[in-house]
Amino acid sequence: MFRVLSSVFPLRSSLRPEPIPWLQETYLSSFEAQVVATLLVVAVLPVGIRAASHVRSIVRRRNGRQLAEASAVLVLASIVFLSVYAFSVIWQVTYVLSVTLETMLIDRWLAAQQLISVAVVVIAYLAIRFVNRSIDKLAQTNALTKHQSEVAYHVTDIGIVAFAGTVLLTLWGIDLTNIFIGAGAITAVVALTARETLTAMLAGFILLFSRPFAVGDWIEVDETTGIVTDVTIFTTKIQTFGDKHVLIPNDQVTNNPLTNYSKNDQLRIDVDVGVDYTDDLEHARSVIVDAVGDLEEIKNAPNPQVIAKRFDESAVVLECRVWIGDPTMRRKLDAQTAMIEAIMDAFDREGITIPYPQRVHAARDDSGFRVSGPNPEETGIRPIND
């Protein structure tokens, strides 16, 4: 039977080298010997699995997790292949493997296509790993923000995968014209039905390259003030000082005035105070400057300034301007509170009045005027007092 199969399947001789037939005739000719040999192979399998785990641990310590997983898979595949071959030798059915390999034989062009395809996939995978590691290194040097890193990951990965897919489709003779036409039609439909989403996405890329703020900055946009907690392709997440989490579409961020209070290392705080019209304004200004000049919450340079701002209904309004460093909302509120308390104490000591809103009513000096009209006596109408 083996002679007949050898003439039909030429791979049989390579699967049964010279020692194999002798081992089969000498030690594996009986059913009992075949059962014992099978049990021995089954008993050796756990040892091989432990060896694969040990190899993975060693490679992981030296070369990283991904290479360790690849090494473990390679060892396990080798163990499985050797086990299958051992069973086929023990039970003298190596011709089954010959039939399998015979059906797997392909021509040179198909083999070349497969090899090139595998090479393209491997190169694309290595390129993605290299680019992602480069982005991580840039992020560690603060050259890229977290938002920029995430966007760069997705853009580069999609670009590499798209390029590799185009190469593979061209290699296997698939016409890309119809694909591009279909993709264009789909893009047009998506652009019409999801204009707002696409606009927000484009605005996200604008924020990526312009970098007007970063996570952790104190900003004000579209009447919303707070701390930036996250920035994605589509939205910017802000935590307000009222502990509300607000999601603002990126197109609104780019289309509205944006104030970044954290961009500079200082912030000016203005406090208005009213002074009575009878008080000396020059003296009041110097008292305010002396009162806020020694506060720990404000900076010494620039120096505090006090200007006359406007005439109010019951007071002359003075504006006190001071600066704080490393601006945050807490520092701003603390400085503003300290300024008001210091000004009130200084005004009390100096006898300067902060007037309440009031109106003064005064009678005219002239004798007035008469309202023209019919005489009540002539009309017969008596006054109500009568």
Score class of each variant (00 low, 15 high):
V35W: 13
S7F: 08
P21Q: 04
F9Y: 13
E18Q: 09
E25S: 14
S7D: 05
S14R: 13
Q34H: 07
P19Q: 09
E32K: 14
Q34D: 00
Q34S: 13
L23M: 14
L28V: 05
S30Q: 01
V35L: 13
L23W: 08
I20M: 11
W22S: 12
S30E: 00
A37D: 05
L28S: 00
L15C: 06
S29M: 09
S7M: 11
P19D: 10
E18S: 12
A33M: 07
F9S: 02
L11W: 03
Y27K: 04
V8R: 13
S13Y: 12
Q24M: 05
Q24L: 03
L23P: 03
L15E: 02
W22A: 14
W22G: 07
F9Q: 00
Y27R: 06
P21R: 10
S7K: 10
P21M: 05
W22P: 01
E18V: 14
A33R: 04
S29L: 08
A33Y: 06
P17D: 04
L11I: 04
F31V: 14
P17R: 09
E25K: 12
P19W: 15
S30A: 03
P21F: 06
A37W: 08
T26K: 14
I20Y: 09
S14D: 06
R16P: 01
S30R: 11
P10F: 09
Y27D: 00
T26M: 09
E25H: 13
R12A: 10
R16I: 10
Q34P: 08
L15R: 01
S14M: 12
V8K: 11
I20K: 04
R12T: 15
E32R: 14
F31K: 14
S7Q: 05
Q34A: 12
V8E: 09
S14K: 15
L28I: 01
V36Q: 06
L28A: 03
Q24R: 05
V8I: 15
Y27H: 11
F31E: 13
R12S: 15
L11M: 07
L23C: 08
S7H: 08
P10Q: 06
W22D: 09
P10H: 03
S14V: 14
S14H: 08
F31S: 15
E25C: 02
S13E: 11
V35H: 10
S14F: 09
Q34L: 02
A33L: 02
S30I: 04
Y27F: 15
P21A: 01
S7V: 01
L15Y: 10
V35G: 03
W22M: 08
Q34T: 05
F9M: 03
R12F: 12
S7I: 12
R16H: 11
E25F: 08
F9K: 00
S14L: 14
P19L: 10
P17A: 06
Q24E: 15
T38Y: 02
T26G: 05
Q34I: 03
A33N: 13
Q24A: 03
S30L: 00
T26H: 11
P17S: 06
L15A: 07
F31L: 12
S7R: 09
S13V: 06
W22I: 15
S14W: 08
A33F: 02
L23N: 11
S13I: 01
S7A: 07
E25L: 05
S14E: 07
V35T: 10
P17V: 11
T26Q: 13
F31M: 13
S29R: 12
S14C: 05
L15T: 03
V36T: 09
S30D: 10
